[in-house]
Simulated scan of single mutants.
Amino acid sequence: MPERTEAGTTSRSRRSPWVSHAVLIAGILIVVFPIYYTFVASTLSLQQILRPPLQLLPGSHFLDNYYEALFGGLGRVGGINVWTLLLNTSIVALSVAVGKIVISILSAYAIVFFRFPFRMTFFWVIFITLMLPVEVRILPTYKVMVDLGLIDTYTGLTLPLMASATATLLFRQFFMTIPGELLEAARVDGAGPWRFFFDFVLPLSKTNIAALFVILFIYGWTQYLWPLLVTNSNDMNTIIIALRKMISYADADTQWHLVMVTTIFAILPPVAVVVLMQRWFVKGLVETEK
């Protein structure tokens, strides 16, 4: 009887990797298939897309569709090409990510390492802003942008999105794990606040910064409501806004082949950031010892 139990356990242990891999492969297919289907549609002509069923193999219009989107312009967004849309979206995403990190790390550094009146009060005020995202305060924020003349500008697109209570909280929690002996040693060595920040705190925070950068870049890249509200000119459209403008209520009026091409270009940069920074991203999220 014990031998049967051991044999049964061995058999189950041999099957379990196959089951795990099967589930993993099924999950990957579920995620990847819509992207592949979009790519296939981006290589077809408009007539082929409008004539169901849509084929599962790439078509022969790959070069024509991508050249038209990149250099010919998109009719429903004022003739703006994808390069301009990618430039606008990249500026927004990078500005939001870098701005949030810079503001958050400096505010967290001041809260943890400086002693001043109402220090914790300021921290809790920052923390409470988690309940006030841009969508909640969108009308007064828009009024301020109009009064400052920042409509249809990169400043108006990015500035209201830069403050981040979440990033401040994460940096504060990490800074509190830095030993006090390190700060005392830096003081004995004659290091001032800025030198301590750049020589000690910033290098220790690089994995946290990398993880937050990935999250915040995707957050800035996928913004829809605020760019829709604060931009009137087609030249300032982000790629997400352009996609919405390209789609008409009537299928015949929508250039679906160009919509699919633009969708592929909208997907590629966030995927590239995640893939290139995957090691830093995972390390920043799971690493506890610095």
Rank of each mutant, 00 (worst) to 15 (best):
M246W: 09
Q223D: 12
W194M: 13
L212N: 08
I215K: 03
M246F: 10
A185W: 01
A242I: 10
M236C: 08
I247L: 11
G190C: 03
N234R: 10
N237T: 04
D235H: 11
P193Y: 12
G220R: 06
N208R: 12
L202S: 04
D235Y: 11
P193A: 09
Y219C: 01
I215Y: 10
I241H: 05
L204M: 15
R187P: 00
L202P: 03
A191I: 00
N208V: 13
F213Q: 07
A186K: 01
F213T: 08
V230S: 13
L216V: 02
I240K: 06
I239L: 14
M246L: 14
R244K: 13
I240A: 15
L229S: 09
Y224G: 06
M246E: 11
A211K: 02
R244T: 14
T231M: 09
T231A: 08
Q223V: 07
A210F: 03
F217R: 09
P203G: 05
R195I: 03
F217G: 09
R187Y: 00
F200R: 10
F200I: 15
P203H: 08
S233F: 02
Y219N: 12
A211H: 04
I209V: 15
L202C: 05
I209K: 09
T238G: 15
F197M: 06
A185S: 13
D199L: 12
I218T: 13
P193F: 04
T222F: 04
L243W: 07
T207C: 00
F200G: 00
A185G: 05
D189H: 01
M236S: 12
N234L: 03
S205N: 03
R195G: 01
L204W: 00
L228F: 13
N208C: 02
F217P: 07
Q223R: 15
D235Q: 14
F200C: 06
N237E: 11
L229T: 14
W226S: 07
A191F: 02
V230A: 14
W226P: 05
P193V: 00
L212E: 09
V230D: 05
M236L: 14
Y224W: 14
D235C: 00
L216F: 12
I241S: 05
K206W: 12
R195K: 13
R195V: 08
T238K: 04
S233T: 12
L225P: 03
T207W: 02
A186Q: 01
V230G: 07
L243S: 10
L225D: 01
W194C: 00
G220D: 08
T231K: 11
T207D: 11
N232P: 01
F213W: 06
A242M: 07
F198L: 13
W226K: 06
S205G: 05
I209D: 07
K206I: 12
I218V: 15
N237K: 15
V201L: 11
L202A: 13
V201R: 04
S233C: 04
F197Q: 03
L225V: 15
Y219K: 10
F217K: 08
V188L: 13
